[in-house]
Write a protein that binds this DNA or RNA. Sequence first.
RNA 1: GCUGCUAUAGUGUAGUCCGGCCAAUCAUGCCGGCCUUUCACGCCGGCGACUGGGGUUCGAAUCCCCAUAGCAGCACCA
Length: 512
Amino acid sequence: MDEVIREVSGLSPAQREEQLRALAPELAEDISRPREHTRELPPLEKAEGGVVMRFAPNPSGPLHLGHARAAVLNDAYVRRYGGRYILRIEDTDPKRVDPLAYAMVREDIEWLGLAISDIVYQSDRFETYYRYARELIQRGGAYVCTCDSERFKALKMAKKPCPCREKSLEDSLHAFEEMLAGSYGEGEATLRVKTDLAHPDPAMRDFPAFRILKSVPHPRIEASVYPLMNFSVAVDDHLLGITHVIRGKDHIANTGRQRYIFEYFGWEPPVYRHYGRMGIEGVVLSTSQMRAGIAAGEYQGWDDIRLGTLRAMARRGITPQAVRDAVLEIGIGETDISFSWENLYAHNRAIVDPKANRYFFVPDPVEVTVEGAPHQTAHALLHPAHPERGTRQLHFAGKALVPREEIEKRPSIVRLKDLFNVEVQYGEGTPRFRFAGESLAEARTRKAPIIQWVPAGECVPAVLYTPDGPRPGVCERAVTREIGAVVQFERIGFARIDTADEKGIFAYFAHR
RNA sequence: GCUGCUAUAGUGUAGUCCGGCCAAUCAUGCCGGCCUUUCACGCCGGCGACUGGGGUUCGAAUCCCCAUAGCAGCACCA
């Protein structure tokens, strides 16, 4: 045996394949098949008959890239296996509910194109939660605790029960009704789930299920006893028939806690998957930090292009498909990752490049008079790969605006793209520009930079907003017809034309 | 402090479950070239990784242990 192994080890892969082919051709088939990269999410267990999944955002602000990962991943599995996709608005903490966010979340979901089949508001379901709370108490799975949080935490860390834990079912039931009746003040009583005080993970010990909150009103309902997420989520996941839950690993402990509730009720829990933490270079994702920045005037609003919100990306011309592609590429790995804009841009470029019309944008323009140049019209293609889309007409009448940056490089000759060549002479003061023929071949042999330009008097002032700040310039008048569309400013990059009025054009830079 | 998860090129990702097709996939990025009246697109070529150390084994990216690092949780937030 050893001998054979040694012999095989000594062979090269090619020799092995040859041998195998001779001995067992049917096995060799497997070998010759090249390994293929799976561009698909890993399969989900117990999903063959269809799935019910959910996207459960907290309505505290608009959706951002972090939400998009959860939303798109779940969406992709629902599309793959068939089933229902429930949007569950988790508005059980009035402190973290922005009434305006309900609408923003819906808009963002529509933009992303999620295949949502049902919408559920947790604030509509408080009576249900109360009902199951009573049931849980009766099953001996919960008790009303009146210890203050400091004291409870100390006991928990010491693996010791608090006095309330030994209360009878009747007492707890009664106390819970008192909570609902408003007999307790804010923070004076809590319904806790009875777990295992000896559990090695302190996060698992007797976690809270309901709290009293009176200082902050809920925008949609009248309530002072609020379910905490582990309770409402467990009850809803069961009642809504959720089969699979894909969420971030920050919920791993919650999954453990929710299992206790499933256990008490004898329910079968869904299949859980927890993906790793995602950091995003260069942007704040925290809703509260963004909100603070907006309030402080640091950001213009939720769609400020320096933010990681979906609406900010939309404004820059990032397509929902690109976001989907980027997020699916990342997948559901448990590794912590840092999201790279480059990867998103590459996806977006692939989508946008075939569509985007090309135009000239001249940043920081300098007006030049070209001596001896014929007045003529340039016909520049709207898209070099699609001549059938036609051209833009640029009427040159002696003067043009060109990027200052190009002249400062002191080229001896430049070609105004799609027009003609211009020789530049430098002396005191402004350089002189002289017509130098129309030959493209000559421009090439003389290595003339081919630059973008715009006819003086036939252009529109424009501002290109980039994450590094606004870039003023001018662009072709025809760009005013591209409002809302993504164009490519030649030699600059892709940008979305946001607005245009008599004062000019406002565009947002997407990427190169 | 306690508990848990993760660790492949600059970034993302495949392979890890069931050790040998892996001197490790694909994409992006970067570099070089070609194409091109854009520094875009396309094409060609190149760069670049199994966290470290032990162990098991004929053989380890893959299994085990330890270490290290990162992350998460231990809220009357989600």
